Simulated scan of single mutants.
Amino acid sequence: METSTIDKIKKKASRLFENQLLLSGSVLEVRKWEPCTMIEIDLHLPFADIAQWTDVPYIKIKVNDFTYRDYTPSCWDAETRTCSLFIDAAHKGPGSEWAQQLKKGDAINYLKIKPTHQAPVGTPAIIALGDESSLGHLLALQQMVLPATRFSGAILMADEQHRGLFREYFRSPLQAIARNDIYGHHSLIQWVIEQQYTLDNTVFYVTGNDTMVIQLRKMLRQQGYASGQIKAQGFWS
């Protein structure tokens, strides 16, 4: 009984402290790609200083009681303080459950927006490589690359319909390619080898599931690219 009372007091104190730190936003629109394992969410973040985003940002969103998940805002507009999230909901968990139940007009709470320390370098060729979990990250990176002709790459998508929707709705030099193995590294490695990129003046930004990121980075090093030419960030195992 005492333990239960103490736990309740701790939770109440934690909630009060949490509420003092949380910022709020609102859901402008929710679009679920068929099949509904990719969810696109438009947000209004009135307290975010979007004009200061010089690195690819991430936002730590409250998805349940004392539970947070990091997502990459992309397609942002600094003047209206709006952005979009692309959430890969194919994996069960509190983040996927939160995204699935969101609807237009809902309020969202987030703890902070911070840089990922991934920003486009001044090389002639920026090659972005990722999977569904990093779609927002790759689109945010694309938005930051000027001139846009420096940017290209590929994103793995297991579902054929999703690949079609990406090609139809996004003006992006990213190629949506099929994932033919569980983590996708074999598919993406084969695609990269076929492109025959030069060793000079090329920098790769590799994001997505940890296994794919590790294996792709290993392959690029074996191809002769220096560690400084490979900017890697894993999202899940």
Rank of each mutant, 00 (worst) to 15 (best):
I39G: 01
E40K: 13
E40V: 06
E40S: 11
I41G: 00
I41Q: 00
D42V: 10
D42N: 06
L43D: 01
L43P: 01
L43E: 00
H44R: 06
H44P: 05
H44W: 10
P46Q: 10
P46D: 04
F47Y: 13
F47R: 14
F47V: 12
F47G: 14
F47C: 12
D49E: 11
D49Y: 11
A51V: 13
A51F: 15
A51N: 06
W53D: 00
W53S: 04
T54V: 15
D55M: 11
P57D: 05
Y58E: 06
I59D: 02
K60R: 12
K60S: 13
I61A: 04
I61W: 01
K62P: 08
K62E: 09
V63Y: 03
V63W: 02
N64C: 11
D65G: 09
F66E: 11
F66W: 11
T67P: 09
R69H: 03
D70Y: 12
D70M: 11
Y71V: 04
T72F: 01
S74A: 08
S74M: 11
C75M: 15
C75Q: 14
C75W: 14
W76A: 05
W76H: 10
D77G: 04
D77N: 09
D77I: 02
A78Y: 02
A78F: 03
E79H: 14
T80P: 06
